[in-house]
């Protein structure tokens, strides 16, 4: 990420340390993950210790300190999805793509993530693939959806 871009994100939050969380969210929104240099830049730009920025980035589960794949498959692990077999979807991706939750395939094509409920409980088990919600999934439909991903 260019320094100018980072600066404009910092500026949009008024360089306020209280907006550290929102600042990091914007960076991840742009970059898809939180590169090391950006965290250092944020620390310097907001005049807060890097230890605090790093603590923030590792506390909240929506942040990734590793590059994420071109496609992101997020499987909902809420209770309703759990009782309807969400764990099996995770195991399916583990089996078929060799990645566990929070991991990315070596070719940076696919990242598997889990989330504790997205609030579409009636549709469980559910996965969000590149921002699209897919409900009432079986391992087979999920498999097909992931195969269809381009690139």
């Amino acid at each position: 990420m260019e320094n100018a871009e980072l600066e404009s994100i910092l500026a949009s939050h008024g360089h306020r340390p209280s907006e550290l969380l929102a600042t990091l969210q914007d960076i991840q929104g742009n970059e898809n993950w939180l590169p090391r240099e950006s965290l250092a830049h944020v620390a310097a730009g907001l005049n807060v210790p890097l230890s605090r920025v790093y603590g923030m980035a590792t506390f909240f589960s929506s942040f990734s300190l590793k590059p994420r794949g071109k496609h992101v498959c997020t499987i909902c692990m809420g209770t309703a999805c759990h009782v309807r077999g969400a764990q099996r979807l995770v195991e399916h991706v583990e089996r078929e793509h060799g990645i566990g939750p929070g991991e990315t395939t070596a070719d940076l094509r696919l990242t598997l993530e889990t989330v504790n409920c997205v609030g579409a409980c009636a549709m469980g088990p559910l996965a969000i693939i590149d921002g699209e919600y897919h409900g009432q999934l079986s391992t087979q439909t999920l498999g097909r959806l992931l195969k269809k991903l381009k690139g």
Partner: peptide, 9 residues
């Protein structure tokens, strides 16, 4: 100095 912090949760 603030060299240290908690990481993770």
């Amino acid at each position: 100095v603030n060299a240290l912090g908690f990481a993770g949760r």
